[in-house]
Structure formats: C-alpha cells, structure tokens
Design a protein around this nucleic acid. Structure first.
Lengths: 180, 180
DNA sequence: AATTTCATGTAACCAGTTACATGATTCA
DNA sequence: TGAATCATGTAACTGGTTACATGAAATT
C-alpha cells in the first residue's frame, strides 16, 4: 500500500505537504523551487504524473474549485486513506541502510512527523536515528583507519567529511530531543 | 563530451575509480557495496550498462585478461580521452545549485581531485565551495526566520539540521584547506 | 501592447531498480 | 557434494529530466 511512497521522495513530499493544507500542482512546484524543502522535482513532468499516481491510489483527491469560471483551479486534498498511508510511512523504523544512503529521506519524514505522529513518536524516531548514526560513524572511522593508506588523500578527506557531517547530525538529533 | 558524466554520479564514480587503477564491473560493484564511496548503484543493471556507455564514448576500454582460459575476466582501463574528460568535469566551477541540491556530487568530485588536478586546484575548489556554502547558510537562515511561524515545528528543526550540517561542511572545507 | 506570471500538461528519452538467468570456481 | 562467491549479464518497469505546448490573467 505504501510501496510507492516509501520509495519515491517526491510522492512522500507531496503527500506530506497535502497533509498540511490543500494545494494545486502549481503550488507544489512553487514550494519545491522556492524552499529548501526540496531536493524534489520542480519539473511539471514529475509533479503532475506523481499527483496522478497518488490520485489513482486514492491517497489524494483532486477538487476543481472556481468551477465554471474562466480560471478553474485544481487543488488536491489528502484522503483518509492517504493520511493513514502517510502515518504508516512516517512510523517505519530507522534502518541502518537509510542512514547510510538516504539521510535526506529520513529528514523529510522527520519534517512532517510532529503534527502527525506526535511528540512521543518523534522523540522515539530521533533516538533511534541517533543510535544508528553513532553506529554509522564508528563504521566510517573503522573504514578510514583500515584503508587510509590505499586511498588518495582527497578521498580520505572526503570520508572525513562524511564523519564530521554525521557527527553534526548526531548532535542535532540529541539537541532536538532535549528541546521536545 | 562530458554531458553524461557530469549528469550521472555513477558514471563519474566509475571513471574516477578507473583513473586510479583498472577494474572489472564486478570490482566496481564490490567497491560500491562495501565502501562509503557510494550512494552509487550496486546493481548490475546499472553498472554494466554504464560501463557500456562509457566504452561507447571511448572514455574507457575493456580488456579481456586471462583470455582463452576457463575464466576470462574483463577489466576496464581509462583512455586518454577518458582522463581528459574526467579532468574537465573535475575542473568545473562550484555552482550554488550544486551546493543546494547535489553536495554529494561535489564531494565525489573532490574525492578524485587531488591526484588529477593537483594541490592548487584542489584548494581553489575548496575555497570556492566554502564561499558558496556560506552563502547558502545565510539563505537558509533567512528562510527559516521569515517562515518559522508558518511551518510545523519539526519542519523548522529539519531546516535547522540543514543549517548545522552545512556549517559543519564549511568548517571541514576550511580545515582541509589549511592541511593542504 | 507586451511581458510576466499563473496553471497545466505531454512526449521522448534515459538511467536506475528489481528480478531473473547463467555458469564457473572455491571452500567447507 | 553442496553452498557460497566470482563474474557477467538481460528484460521489464518506473520515475525523473528536458523540452515543448498552450492559454488565461495580471502587471507594466
């Protein structure tokens, strides 16, 4: 049921935004182009088909407002099924895999989490995330130690960047837990 | 000439790795699965076609070693044209766009840079990068200030994550410049 | 009147994912 | 002998990119 959404960041972003308020395809594209809330496709060739897919799965519903007037506008609202699906996706545990390859996807989930899952679950998510990151940092350090000599200097620096970057995220996660 | 490579992180990763030493498709996949040096496709359905494409453009050349034996193995070596192409891609300036949406691509370029462009160009790259990041951080802060009230609390925290994460990268870039 | 912005789309293309297929070799 | 690993691939599908198209409304 949530297959597509958990795979495509774009679908999740759209569903998440629609959970806040109804929006048109144009509105969504504008958000993706003008806010940091997107790595997400700004192109109509991605957004409109994504809306169609979500609509096809009954996770969102299109509503033509100003019908009959010269400028009708199609806005989309999230359906109860869509809300349930979103909830389910946001509730997935944090996997080591996601920490390694799709941290931005985790951040996207986090961004929509507060309103939908509540404080407890959000804290739980961050705690899980922190644990996974700490693990990942250890792995990166181990990798660097054992391979430093065999790799180009700049490659080693790039790995170091990974380490400090994850450490910053770890600190962030802990500080947000405290604030919540 | 460098169109495809500058677009596809996978192609760049492959070309970069082959600039260090000859490798087979299997070797490449192993690197992508076992080292942090990949967000990059581990699937044969991506790696082998990518090798074909690079070969088609004469940027790499396949060499069958152990020919005639029961287990021939195909390794790929980078061609002079491939080396030139790689050099060109690595020499591209750092754009604001890349800092915003494709930081990992920039790190990939950096990882291969030392050996190929030399110390001066690498420092130049990092300096440029630092400037762009500082700019981007300012933008994020501005965005957060003006929109904090209209966005969910966790979304604001997510933006804060972006800020601290870029700041960490900025510090990293500066520290690496000093080390070089 | 001309330009920009609002608003929605399509079509061709391309790259990556998933899943499947094949067969040799090495190791337990 | 059977399992794991080495090694290379293909085919179907999917989703995103680029580029193009259309036309109304608002702005200058």
């Amino acid at each position: 049921m949530n297959d597509d959404i958990s795979k495509s960041a774009l679908s999740l972003a759209i569903l998440g935004l629609l959970s806040l308020r109804p929006l048109s395809g144009y509105d969504l594209r504008k958000i993706f182009t003008t806010t940091p809330m997107g790595h997400f496709s700004t192109s109509p060739g991605a957004v409109y088909p994504a809306l169609r897919r979500l609509e096809g799965k009954k996770l969102i519903r299109g509503k033509v407002i100003n019908k009959g007037t010269l400028r009708p506008k199609q806005t989309f609202v999230i359906t109860p099924a869509g809300m349930a699906c979103l909830k389910e996706v946001l509730s997935q545990p944090v996997t080591a895999d996601e920490v390694t390859w799709r941290l931005d996807g985790l951040m996207l989930r986090f961004a929509f989490m507060g309103r939908i899952l509540g404080r407890r679950a959000t804290i739980q998510f961050l705690t899980e995330l922190a644990g996974r990151i700490a693990e990942h940092v250890r792995e990166l350090k181990r990798h660097l130690e054992t391979n430093r000599k065999t790799m180009p200097e700049t490659a080693a620096f790039a790995v170091e960047h990974g380490i400090i970057s994850y450490q910053a995220t770890l600190q962030w996660a802990r500080s947000v837990v405290k604030k919540l």
